[in-house]
Amino acid sequence: MKFSTTSLVAFYLGLAAASPIEPRTTVQGFDISSYQPNVDFKAAYAAGARFVIIKATEGTTTIDSTFSKHYTGATAAGLIRGGYHFAHPSSSSGATQAEYFLAHGGGWSSDGRTLPGMLDIEYNPSGATCYGLSHASMVAWVKDFSNTYHAKTGAYPMIYSTADWWNQCTGNSAEFHTTNPLVLARYGSSPGTIPGGWPFETIWQNADSYKYGGDSDIFNGSLDQLKKIAKG
């Protein structure tokens, strides 16, 4: 199948209904960028990590200098891997940035080892609240990125954000909860409030440090379920 959170939601909810008292299965992963120039992927795999999300691009002017090196290392270590794009919604359209991401490592293929690309959309490093966009304009920007990515790959990109940013900058839009998997950033003992109508987070970024580099990520499901996302 082409990746759709609708089917994934149904699958997860079916599991929950069948065995509500079973402990939740999770899979350890992490995300990295050029801030972590040297990563021991084999050691991370040996310690239990099974996936890594690697920064590929930012806006339409930055290609992460370590993306190719990281992607090659992760592949050699046997990790499921994928790229992410740090959004700059005020600088160009969602479609333009999706195309840039796709051209520089953000693609997806149904090989069981490649995660759909991730749109990292969050606080503006330059300081302007919500990049100066209204709720409607921000939702339209994300939709433009998402639809462009989907048209090119057959998969919807994952969306990374925080509950606070999503509320503040999209008006807690529920436009994406049946199509795009949520990667929720919240450092603590639980994911906390799930924004945007998503019934659950697909991946929880639970800490800003991981032993082998970058941030710690927890996939909300089994390894087989993670592989199904990578397969599509």
Rank of each mutant, 00 (worst) to 15 (best):
M1N: 12
M1H: 13
F3P: 04
S4T: 11
T5Q: 11
V9L: 10
F11V: 06
L13N: 12
L13R: 11
L13G: 01
P20W: 06
P20H: 02
E22T: 14
P23Q: 10
T25Y: 05
T25W: 03
T26D: 02
Q28E: 12
F30V: 08
F30G: 05
S34G: 08
P37C: 13
P37S: 13
V39I: 15
F41R: 03
K42T: 14
K42L: 10
A43G: 12
A43K: 11
A44M: 05
Y45H: 12
A46W: 02
A46C: 08
I53F: 05
I53L: 10
T57Q: 03
E58T: 09
G59D: 08
T61E: 11
T62H: 12
I63L: 05
D64Q: 07
S65A: 14
T66M: 09
S68Q: 14
S68W: 06
G73C: 11
A74S: 10
L79Y: 07
L79T: 10
I80K: 02
G82T: 12
H85Y: 06
H88P: 00
P89M: 13
S91L: 11
S93Y: 00
S93W: 00
A95Q: 10
Y100E: 02
Y100Q: 02
L102F: 02
A103R: 14
A103L: 09
H104R: 01
G106F: 01
G107P: 03
D111G: 06
G112V: 13
G112W: 10
T114W: 01
T114G: 04
L115T: 04
P116Q: 02
M118V: 15
I121M: 09
Y123L: 09
N124K: 08
Y131Q: 04
Y131K: 04
Y131R: 01
G132M: 09
L133K: 15
S134Y: 05
A136P: 00
A136G: 11
A140D: 11
W141F: 03
K143G: 02
K143V: 03
D144R: 04
D144A: 10
N147D: 15
A151F: 03
K152L: 01
K152T: 08
T153L: 07
G154H: 02
A155C: 07
Y156Q: 03
M158C: 11
I159P: 02
T162M: 07
A163D: 15
W165L: 13
W166F: 14
N167Y: 13
N167F: 10
C169F: 11
G171I: 09
G171C: 08
N172S: 14
S173K: 12
S173L: 11
E175I: 08
H177A: 14
N180R: 00
P181C: 12
P181K: 07
L182T: 04
R186L: 02
G188C: 05
S190Y: 06
S190W: 01
P191W: 11
I194E: 04
G196Y: 00
G196P: 06
G196W: 00
G197H: 03
W198E: 09
W198F: 14
F200T: 04
F200L: 09
W204A: 04
N206S: 15
D208W: 11
D208P: 09
K211L: 12
D215H: 09
S216E: 12
S216D: 14
D217T: 05
L223V: 09
L223C: 04
L223A: 03
L223N: 05
K228Q: 13
K228T: 12
I229C: 05
I229N: 01
A230P: 01
